[in-house]
Design a protein around this nucleic acid. Structure first.
Length: 273
DNA sequence: AGCTGGTCCTGATGGC
DNA sequence: TGCCATCAGGACCAGC
């Protein structure tokens, strides 16, 4: 389940490995992803040079000059760079073939996506999948004030508001729990009832948590392979996530498990108020 | 067998 | 009546 740090690690890997290279072939082996992969892409992309790889939220943006290939890894997507081709496995959906090797997209659960945004349709930021996204957590505008102002009138629990991604992107289920713990805020608190100083703490905690994870090379519980093909299995050194019933690392109180809209949240009753 | 989860989509609700 | 924002819940999946 790649979260923003994993996607950022993959982006950096791609930038080093395949940016600047011409695409020889785009092979769609199994188009069934979140939306069917357009078979036209094979024609559209063959011979085009991949200029650069950017990221917006958890979307990878592969800039081919004539447009962008938007790639989302969903829950179980991986991009593996292979020096030479090998027999495809089950769930190997797409190959991006370059002269020096190929990038293989593998996604058993098919929550991932690969869609094209043509340059003629304007900047990639205008793509419907990207247009509604909140700002990047590392954007200088992202701070406590941003969260405070964006949460006025919102009755929804802060955990859910973070997950929704309309305020700030990249805070998935793991990092939402971790960030709220670090900020000392209870995940069920209605967003509108949180004070400005507490949002200052939260913004800092979000940034810190994501930064730390990126530093460590990404953290994911499973399914993550870096674009180089090596295991990128940096087990998250979680303070609360996945630790229900175990003692809080700060105060010793048993970590609690809460269900919010069908999703698990982990928190400490003593440390979070 | 049941649980897991990122994100889009749909549909209900409420305010103006 | 209509529209928009908000919010909940469903759907998509295979692996464990």
């Amino acid at each position: 389940m790649p979260e923003l740090p994993e996607v950022e690690i993959v982006r950096r890997g791609l930038q080093q490995t395949v940016a600047g290279r011409a695409l020889r072939a785009f092979t769609v082996r199994d188009p069934r992803l979140r939306w069917p992969v357009d078979p036209e892409l094979a024609v559209r992309l063959a011979g085009r040079r991949l200029l650069t790889v950017d990221r917006r939220g958890k979307y990878l943006l592969l800039d081919f000059g004539s447009g962008w290939l938007l790639v989302h890894l969903g829950m179980s997507g991986t991009l593996t760079f292979l020096r030479e081709s090998s027999e495809p496995r089950r769930h190997d959906h797409v190959d991006l073939v370059f002269d020096h090797g190929l990038l293989r997209y593998h996604d058993p659960r098919r929550f991932g996506a690969m869609v094209w945004h043509d340059a003629q349709q304007g900047a990639v930021a205008g793509h419907p999948l990207l247009a509604g996204l909140g700002i990047e957590p590392f954007d200088p505008r992202f701070d406590g004030r941003w969260l405070y102002e964006g949460s006025r009138g919102r009755q929804v629990a802060i955990k859910q508001l973070l997950l929704a991604g309309g305020l700030v992107v990249g805070v998935g289920n793991i990092y939402a729990s971790e960030s709220l713990f670090r900020a000392g805020i209870r995940p069920g608190t209605p967003a509108a009832r949180i004070s400005r100083p507490r949002y200052d703490r939260l913004a800092g905690a979000i940034r810190q948590t994501l930064e730390l994870a990126i530093e460590r090379g990404g953290s994911s519980l499973r399914d993550f392979v870096s674009s180089e093909g090596e295991q990128g299995y940096f087990q998250l050194d979680a303070l609360v996530y996945g630790r229900d019933g175990q003692p809080c690392r700060v105060c010793g109180e048993p970590v609690r498990l809460l269900r919010q809209q069908g999703r698990s949240t982990f928190w400490c009753r003593r440390c979070q108020r």
